[in-house]
Design a protein around this nucleic acid. Structure first.
Lengths: 230, 230
DNA sequence: CGTGAGGTTGATCGCTTTCAACGGAGGTGG
DNA sequence: CCACCTCCGTTGAAAGCGATCAACCTCACG
């Protein structure tokens, strides 16, 4: 029904230029992280900045009673751990087998002092993250469960398949629990909402981890004005 | 009961060093903004970066049906509009009479190219904002109404009075509506929750805009582990 | 074939929202 | 000076959405 070759996977994403491409010749190291394993913990010394080469990571905070909020998923080409603080301010796990390129923060900052171009790229990267987080505030604070999940799937669909495809099929690398904690819901509500979107004919779920968007326009309508400023 | 001189107001906050202190001799301009008036709108050309000198601003996004999410309050000493995008990604209003110092973005970026020190301060400013937003994700996604309001009041209490005061009194510059849209609640729930905190003896409300924290430890307990990483 | 983790579905509960009425503060004009 | 109006905040009653508790299913793995 859906040939494997059509199914988009985050791991397939081939990124173009690295953030520090051409500016750092040495000091980088590549590193594999297995599914479910941590890259770092909240409060750890923030000695490294990472660029995701393959796989997906999940950044989250915990409350003492165990409640968890996923603050973001980090995909190939994205940067993790950018920050001037001495320690990381979230935990970070790989949600599937992954690979990162690491660079010592001290070296990155030293080079940024010499090469203003790098500094400006870093600032750009940080403010892009800020802009993305604004939208997530709206989602968490003001959207219904259905709108939340539709918004989330829409973001993934666009990332994996570009804006304009009418139909897309992709694999969810993260679990229902990760999605729930990202959207501020429970796993039961996420599951029920998946079923509702399926029943409504907006998506198909050939497997629980495979999403087929049947009608991206209806998904956009359901997500309620993701990008509409006014 | 509470002498006026003890009541902290955000306007009183005297900030020390400006972000670009000593690095920009010209190009700055000061500007007054009246309560309720906009500083800029989402989508506007982001020609200026502002430093708040006095008063409080409120940044927010709107959904097309009118739902609003306040993404942050901006206090004296804070920076608004930092970003490399061509346009602002939120609306921004003054919640009370305010004053800002503006600087053309182009000039700021040009100087940053020459003075890496400024670039690093800008990056620092951006990543501090990122870190603060992480905590707000936890609040929006995982906290109850009581925990949300307690967390919010605690943040204000600390800002206005330092960490360790047992009792603090301060004026809320923003309306219940602003608070509700910041915490992802309705004004009714915010109002009811204020009453609950008052009934529980955690705070007093001599006036609706004046908060007296009677027991900051109990406020911290109610806020549930604001800063507890694990 | 047993086991355990992840996912789905059902029934019920409860917190927050919604709808509605009321009260107080500030501003305006007769 | 006071009646009137509007905005903001509070409170009550009822409804609804998502959470909670619980059972069951599916699939990978040993």
């Amino acid at each position: 029904m859906y040939s494997v070759s059509e199914i988009k996977r985050p791991a397939n994403t081939t990124q173009t230029a690295s953030l520090w491409n051409g500016l750092l010749e040495t000091g980088q190291a590549e590193m594999n992280v297995r599914a479910g394993e941590p890259l770092f913990f909240e409060g750890d010394e923030a000695d490294f900045v990472y660029e995701v080469l393959d796989g997906v990571f999940c950044c989250y905070s915990l409350l003492p009673d165990g409640r968890r909020q996923v603050t973001g998923f980090v995909h190939p080409g994205d940067i993790i751990g950018l920050g001037s603080q001495a320690t990381y301010h979230t935990n970070c796990d790989a949600v599937c087998d992954a690979m990162v390129r690491s660079i010592p923060r001290s070296r990155l900052m030293r080079v940024a002092e010499e090469r203003p171009e790098l500094g400006s790229r870093l600032l750009n990267c940080a403010t892009e993250q800020l802009a993305g987080m604004q939208q997530h505030f709206v989602l968490l604070g003001r959207k219904s469960a259905k709108e939340k999940l539709a918004s989330f799937l829409l973001t993934l669909a666009r990332r994996y398949a570009g804006e304009d495809a009418g139909e897309v099929t992709f694999v969810l690398p993260m679990t229902r629990s990760d999605i729930a904690d990202y959207l501020g819901l429970t796993i039961e509500t996420v599951s029920r909402t998946f079923t509702k979107l399926k029943t409504a004919g907006v998506i198909d779920l050939p497997q629980s981890t495979t999403v087929h968007v049947r009608d991206i326009l209806r998904l956009e309508e359901t997500a309620e004005a993701m990008d509409c400023g006014v």
